[in-house]
Simulated scan of single mutants.
Amino acid sequence: MRMKFLPAIALLFISAFLPALAQAADITGVPKIREGDSIQIGSTRIRLGGIDAPSVDQLCLNNSGERWACGVAAREELTKHVGDKSWTCHQRQAADRRGRVVAHCEVDGEDIQKWLVASGWALSYARFSHDYDSDEKAAREAKAGMWQGAFIAPWDWRVRNKKTTILGAAKPPPNAHAILLASASGSVAPSPDCTIKGNVNGSGECIYHTPASRWYAQIKMTISKGTRWFCSKEDAEAAGCRETRR
């Protein structure tokens, strides 16, 4: 008879401490904004859950068919909106494959993921969550952010090929695929602020080179070689690259 009460007692004990555990998992502070969906608070790297934003080296097309650095714009717009304020991030799971904590973040009570999607700077990551589907629909109808022109969904862009679907309100020009597929490592940097080159050496190690590096000019930015542009040394190191020793 005594044993029957043990599970009930254990459940009461766990329930009493669940709020404390949830609160302990919260991460607060003014962040460093790495990308539209990736930040760092203190030493903790955080991936904003439920959404997917363009990488900083991803390019889009505007409503005139001209390419623009939508990944950089997503990061800059988020920084302007709440970058200098204290964030509260509620941890959803331990970490993603890149070691980032997956969390839902708020600033002064505002759902940051919701703002990003509704403003057209990120998409609802329906593969993992449908929390922001209605916000994406609203952004698409308003032609907000990336939706004003043409672009590739961030998850497709990372594994893109010639059959990748192009999204957006504008009718893409005939060469749209060539422009969007080459954006990761085209010969032209995606932004004047994003001129650090990353390449993969013979050992499979990612190395980054600033314009002052010895071999900078010799590095050809081609997708097949695994090269990409970075906007800062911190961005390159967060992606797992190290600075060249020469």
Rank of each mutant, 00 (worst) to 15 (best):
R2F: 10
R2K: 13
R2P: 13
F5D: 13
A8G: 12
I9C: 11
A10C: 10
F13W: 08
A16C: 13
A16D: 12
F17N: 11
L18A: 14
L21W: 14
L21S: 15
A22M: 14
A22I: 11
A22N: 14
A22Q: 14
A22D: 15
A22H: 14
A24Y: 14
A25S: 15
D26V: 10
D26A: 14
G29Q: 01
E35H: 10
G36D: 07
I39A: 04
I39H: 04
Q40P: 06
Q40T: 07
I41T: 03
I41H: 03
S43A: 05
T44R: 04
L48D: 04
G49D: 11
G50T: 04
I51V: 08
I51D: 01
D57H: 10
C60R: 07
C60Y: 10
C60G: 09
N62F: 08
E66D: 15
R67C: 14
A69I: 08
A69T: 07
C70A: 11
G71E: 09
V72G: 05
A73R: 12
A73T: 14
A74I: 06
E76N: 07
E76Y: 07
H81L: 04
G83F: 01
D84S: 06
R97Y: 13
R97G: 08
R100W: 01
V101W: 02
V102M: 13
A103R: 05
A103D: 07
H104M: 12
H104D: 15
C105A: 05
E110A: 07
E110Y: 00
W115N: 02
A118D: 02
S119G: 06
G120R: 00
G120K: 00
G120W: 00
F128K: 13
F128V: 13
H130E: 14
H130S: 13
H130Q: 14
Y132N: 00
D133C: 05
S134L: 09
S134D: 13
S134Y: 12
E136Y: 04
R140N: 11
E141R: 13
G145A: 01
M146C: 06
W147D: 08
G149I: 02
A153D: 14
W155Q: 12
R158W: 11
N161G: 09
K163V: 15
T164I: 10
G168W: 04
A169V: 12
A170M: 10
A170N: 09
P174L: 09
P174G: 10
H177Q: 10
A178E: 10
I179T: 06
L181M: 11
L181Q: 13
A182N: 09
A182Y: 09
S183M: 09
S183C: 08
S185F: 05
G186Q: 08
S187G: 15
S191E: 01
P192E: 07
D193P: 02
G198P: 01
V200K: 04
G202T: 05
G204Q: 02
G204P: 08
E205M: 11
Y208R: 04
Y208A: 01
H209V: 00
S213R: 05
S213T: 02
W215P: 09
Y216R: 00
I219C: 01
G226T: 03
S232N: 04
K233N: 06
K233L: 00
E234I: 07
A236N: 02
A238Q: 09
A238V: 10
C241A: 09
C241M: 02
R242Q: 07
R242K: 06
R245N: 15
